[in-house]
Computed example of a mutant assay.
Amino acid sequence: MSKIHAVIVDPNVPGRLALSEVTAPKPAPDEALVRVAAISLKIHLPDLQWRQKDPKLAHWYDEFSKRPSIQATRPES
Rank of each mutant, 00 (worst) to 15 (best):
P11I: 03
R16M: 11
K53N: 09
R67K: 15
T73D: 14
T73R: 14
S2G: 05
A6H: 04
S20E: 14
W50E: 07
L41G: 04
E31N: 09
A38R: 06
A58R: 04
A38W: 05
A6K: 08
R67Y: 08
K66S: 13
I70E: 12
L19F: 00
E31P: 05
K3R: 09
A6R: 05
L48K: 01
D30P: 00
A58G: 04
I39D: 12
I43L: 14
Q49G: 04
P46F: 09
P29F: 10
K26V: 14
I43A: 15
V13N: 03
K66V: 02
I8Y: 02
D54P: 01
A38K: 01
A24N: 01
A28T: 04
A18G: 00
L17Y: 10
P11M: 07
I4T: 08
S77Q: 11
P14E: 12
K26H: 10
P27C: 09
N12Q: 14
K3N: 07
M1D: 08
S65T: 04
A58Y: 05
D47C: 01
V7D: 06
L57S: 11
S20R: 13
I4Y: 03
S65L: 09
K26N: 13
A37K: 06
L48I: 08
I8F: 04
P55R: 09
L57Y: 13
P75G: 12
D47A: 14
Y61P: 00
E21I: 00
W50G: 03
S65D: 14
P29M: 10
P11L: 10
E31S: 13
L45C: 06
D54E: 04
R51L: 05
V7T: 12
K66T: 10
S65R: 03
P55C: 11
G15R: 04
